[in-house]
Design a protein around this nucleic acid. Structure first.
Lengths: 143, 143
DNA sequence: TACATGATGATAATAATTATCAGTATCACG
DNA sequence: CGTGATACTGATAATTATTATCATCATGTA
């Protein structure tokens, strides 16, 4: 496995805790788990885990591009398995009910990317979040 | 001023505090002020203000579409003056140095909007955030 | 001007996250 | 297969951002 090398290169160690955190997030692909949700799920397999370890592990796995951090503006940081470029997906966040939907599409056209390039911004691995109203909420509210 | 009516309609009162908060955010258009930054700035003009008032006022002004909330994923909520549709702008966030740039362009093409519509999501007043590397950081890092 | 009640300031309470530190486990090396 | 250097962990204290509480104050209508 290349993972081991990736860790060793940086003097990092592969621990049981780190492995289980990875497993849990991968198992729940499609969800957007908060740190404390991950804590609860990890405890099911490894009851001795400490919350501090969760908070230390998640940013580390993010830096290693094993997880992606997402902020859905609900007051906590969330994580999902890292998606390579080809499987990039974006989030539609309903500002009313908070529901989160995913769109698996490259939402930026070539022209738009050009605009960003012109700003000297390299959007390798970008992420788009759209705020709006989901079907249900759009019908209720006549905004 | 239509503002007064807008407040009265909902049984809300126009207070000195609310006015100064608005003034401060408008005065710093282009910046993305956090709640505590706004607190500090308001104190310069109105030293008696309480932090709780800031936290009560900002979401209220947001609901009235006088301010926009932005989350730049740095652990706090930020605000900027509300931008009507024509002046919509988006944020480029450097994941390395945290710098925030603005692009004043409609980043989603018609096709892309269609994709979103197909998901039954009405993106009236959407906001796009792009994560990536700014010029400086892209040069340092060979990602 | 007076009053009904919405708004405020001070502060206690929560919630998410970070820092500290002594004890533990990993893994390179022999 | 030890063993030791040190990275990692769990427990917990400390921070930081935000929300709730409540007595007092100020707005705007009558």
């Amino acid at each position: 496995m290349k993972l081991k090398e990736q860790f060793n290169q940086k003097g990092l160690r592969i621990t049981k805790q780190r492995q289980i955190v990875m497993e849990v997030v991968e198992k729940h692909k499609g969800r957007h788990l908060s740190s404390s949700e991950i804590f609860e799920l990890v405890k099911e397999n490894y009851s001795g885990i400490g919350l501090a370890t969760i908070y230390r592990t998640l940013p580390l796995l993010e830096k290693m591009k094993l997880l992606s951090k997402i902020c859905l503006d609900d007051g906590c940081v969330r994580y999902e398995p890292y998606a390579p470029k080809e499987q990039e997906h974006h989030h539609l966040i309903c500002v009313k009910c908070g529901a989160v939907y995913e769109v698996e599409a490259d939402l930026l056209g070539i022209e738009e990317k050009q605009i960003i390039m012109n700003n000297h911004f390299s959007t390798q691995n970008y992420m788009v979040k759209l705020y709006g109203y989901c079907k249900t909420c759009a019908e209720e509210d006549v905004v």
